[in-house]
Simulated scan of single mutants.
Amino acid sequence: MPFSDGLPIGALAERTGLAVSAIRYYEDQGLISPWRNPGGQRRYQRADIRRLSFVMIAQQFGLSLPEIREVLSGLPGNRTPTKADWTRISKGLRKLLDERISTLLRLRDNLDGCIGCGCLSLPNCKLYNPEDRAKKGGSGPRYLMGDTPDT
Results as ranks from 00 to 15, higher is better:
A11W: 09
A11K: 14
G17Q: 04
I23C: 12
Y25K: 00
Y26K: 01
E27L: 05
E27G: 01
E27F: 01
D28Y: 02
G30Q: 12
G30K: 02
G30D: 12
I32G: 09
S33T: 14
W35V: 14
G39C: 05
G39T: 09
Q41W: 10
R42P: 04
R42E: 04
R42N: 08
R43I: 10
R43F: 07
Y44I: 10
A47S: 15
D48M: 06
D48E: 07
L52M: 12
V55R: 09
I57P: 00
A58V: 10
Q59I: 09
F61I: 09
L63E: 03
L63I: 01
L63P: 00
E67C: 00
E67W: 03
E67M: 11
E67I: 03
E70D: 10
E70C: 03
G74F: 13
G77L: 12
G77Y: 01
N78M: 08
R79C: 05
T80L: 08
T80G: 05
P81N: 06
P81Q: 01
P81A: 01
P81I: 07
T82D: 09
K83P: 08
W86F: 06
I89F: 05
G92C: 08
G92I: 01
G92S: 06
L93N: 08
R94D: 15
R94M: 10
R94I: 01
K95Y: 01
L96K: 14
L96I: 12
R100Y: 03
R100K: 15
T103R: 15
L105K: 13
L105M: 11
R106G: 08
L107Y: 05
L107Q: 11
D109Q: 13
D109F: 05
N110L: 07
L111D: 09
L111P: 02
L111T: 11
G116M: 08
L120W: 02
L120P: 03
S121H: 10
L122E: 13
P123Q: 12
N124T: 13
N124A: 14
K126Y: 03
P130M: 06
P130V: 13
E131S: 11
D132Q: 13
A134P: 04
G138A: 05
G140W: 06
Y143H: 07
Y143Q: 09
